[in-house]
């Protein structure tokens, strides 16, 4: 199983901590009504479940509203520079594989200025958990278009509408070979807790997109499908091994027509539950995962939950194994001998 932490971490766990143990003494300063409050609260809530001592947990962030989260966690924290948190996390894991490292980022931080680092930390399967707050706008700089801003959307930097096509964050994560890919929503607190918990137990590169509302600069960016009265019909909650069913009456499903997904109603036109795609998050073949990462409202319900979860040796395990192998093969390095390697001569 990949959803296991190294025993050394779990074994070291002291008596069970609570959510309060993970709140720092700093006053939380996001705009009133910001979706970040919920993400922080759910993060603090699930932390005790991992059984990892506080001192072995590190939150690393970049720049943007999301970047402030480490200040509010009573763990080790590093608020770094724009887009570069995955690089610091990679180096930290290289030096200290036993630590549980979270990267907190946003759509601009992760996909624009830091896009390269997301790509490479994921493909290396560095054992880090990237949580990307996606509000589809630059909030901290007060309202410019981000890589996920909708085409044609008017923002301060695109007064006549954005001419840039938006990116699907999870498609990028899958293309980069992240071993764990998931999506949740700031307002669906239980679901978010569940996804964060799964994320925390994964070993390897995890990428989680949290649809988050910026009520000041892009209010309601996700509400067309997240509002309470429509979300059952417009979101698809993925569960491993279960058919992809959604809708108020739980009678809508996703079926494959050749290579293309389509929405069908179970019980109509002879369609039964057996026709509906069954979610397999562990499938090595990413075809269906790519489809799930790409389908979106209004053509399709927006999938949330764990899309992909595959076991693969982590980067730090591989690096350590190479060192162990080299020592087994050559013996531990003898520095005095190395300094004297090559031809030497002695002057009396």
């Amino acid at each position: 199983m990949t959803d296991q932490l190294a025993p050394s971490l779990a074994d070291a766990a002291p008596s069970k901590l609570t959510r309060k143990d993970f709140a720092s003494d700093q006053e939380v300063r996001w705009c009133p009504g910001c979706g970040d409050y919920s993400i922080l609260a759910q993060t603090q809530k699930v932390m005790p479940d991992f059984g990892v001592p506080r001192e072995n947990i590190v939150f690393i962030s970049g720049i943007g509203c999301s970047g402030r989260l480490p200040y509010y966690m009573n763990t080790y924290g590093f608020h770094s520079i724009h887009g570069r948190a995955p690089t610091i996390a990679t180096g930290l894991k290289e030096a200290r594989p036993e630590l549980m490292v979270w990267v907190v980022t946003g759509d601009g931080d992760a996909l624009s200025i830091g896009g390269n680092h997301i790509l490479h930390s994921m493909r290396r399967n560095v054992d880090i958990r990237v949580v990307m707050f996606n509000n589809r706008i630059y909030g901290l700089t007060k309202g410019q278009a981000s890589p996920t801003t909708e085409f044609g959307q008017k923002t301060k930097s695109t007064p006549t509408g954005s001419a840039d096509y938006p990116i699907h964050p999870l498609v990028v994560a899958l293309a980069a070979e992240a071993s764990f890919v998931a999506r949740s929503v700031d307002t669906q607190t239980e679901h978010l807790q569940g996804v964060l918990e799964r994320t925390g137990f994964h070993r390897g590169s995890a990428f989680v997109e949290v649809l988050q509302n910026c009520n000041i600069f892009n209010d309601g960016a996700h509400r067309a499908f997240t509002d309470r009265d429509v979300r059952d019909d417009r979101m698809l909650i993925l569960e491993h091994g279960k058919p992809m069913i959604f809708g108020k009456n739980r009678d809508l499903g996703i079926r494959l027509d050749g290579l293309r997904p389509e929405i069908v109603r179970v019980g109509e036109d002879g369609i039964t539950l057996d026709d509906i795609l069954v979610h397999d998050e562990t499938s090595e073949d990413p075809t269906i995962h790519n489809m799930l990462a790409r389908i979106y409202w209004p053509e399709f319900p927006v999938p949330i939950g764990v899309i992909r979860n595959v076991p693969r040796p982590t980067h730090d395990e591989l690096v350590d194994a190479q060192i162990r192998d080299a020592i087994a093969r050559q013996g531990p390095g003898d520095l005095a001998r190395l300094l004297r390697s090559g031809e030497t001569w002695t002057v009396q």
């Binding site: 570069r84 690089t87 290289e94 790509l119 060192i323 050559q330």
Partner: peptide, 25 residues
């Protein structure tokens, strides 16, 4: 490697110094 050195060929110059700083941290 048998000296226990960990080397990392980063994706770019920024990632290289970022990883070095993360290791120092």
């Amino acid at each position: 490697k048998n000296f226990g050195i960990k080397t990392f060929q980063a994706e770019d110059e920024i990632a290289a110094i970022g990883a070095a700083l993360g290791a120092s941290y």
